[in-house]
């Protein structure tokens, strides 16, 4: 089946069996290996990507669901080689072994697009479907707060002075905004995709 979708802002046509996992389509067909697999059953969140702005476990999504959709992976977070505030914040202890980091970043990105000033409890809930075995989550939660702070400060600094540029910037990210709203506020990572698997 031919699947047409946008991946990290670029239109793609992918030839793939429809029931292949979105994870495999990204990693193997498109060679976007930033998205990781940790469990293959929607528990660890390492494979989290944004599908039309919503965080999903790409190991549980069949490729055919990507038809016509916009997908953002970790490779799509930095713009022209410049790290996003979230990525920047993860350089200081939020990423240890790094295998959960791409998924963690995508879940955090989804949260920050929805809530620019999340409280600690909200961050912890939004990341509860992304397992990390290295950090105890302390530095991850700190990183998300720091990124929110930096983003707010940048927005505040930009708004009055350079309206044009700020508007342009918003447009770039703005595409996902309606979808963001649609995404239920509680897109609780915990119930995001639990699936019983035959033992």
């Amino acid at each position: 089946m031919k699947i047409r979708c946008r991946v990290n802002g670029v239109s793609r046509e992918v030839e793939t069996p429809p029931m292949v996992r979105l994870l495999d389509m990204l990693r193997e067909t498109l060679r976007l290996t930033g998205t990781k697999e940790g469990c293959g059953e929607g528990e660890c969140g390492a494979c989290t990507v944004l599908l039309n702005g919503q965080p999903v476990n790409s190991c549980l999504v069949p490729a055919c669901h990507a038809e016509g959709a916009s997908i953002v992976t970790v490779e799509g977070l930095s713009k022209r080689g410049k790290l996003s505030p979230l990525q920047e914040a993860f350089l200081h202890g939020g990423a240890q072994c790094g295998i959960c980091t791409p998924g963690m970043l995508m879940a955090a990105q989804a949260l920050l697009q929805e809530n620019g000033a999340p409280k600690e409890a909200v961050i912890r809930e939004a990341l509860a479907g992304n397992l990390c075995r290295c950090t105890g989550y302390v530095k991850i939660v700190e990183a998300v707060r720091e990124a929110a702070k930096v983003t707010r400060a940048a927005a505040a600094a930009k708004k009055p002075a350079r309206k044009k540029k700020a508007a342009g910037k918003e447009k770039a990210g703005g595409k996902q905004k309606p979808a963001m709203k649609k995404a239920a506020r509680k897109k609780p990572a915990t119930s995001r995709g639990k699936r019983a698997r035959r033992a």
Partner: peptide, 10 residues
């Protein structure tokens, strides 16, 4: 952290 840059970009 030196190895983190490559880890946050995939």
């Amino acid at each position: 952290k030196k190895d983190a840059a490559a880890k946050v970009t995939g």
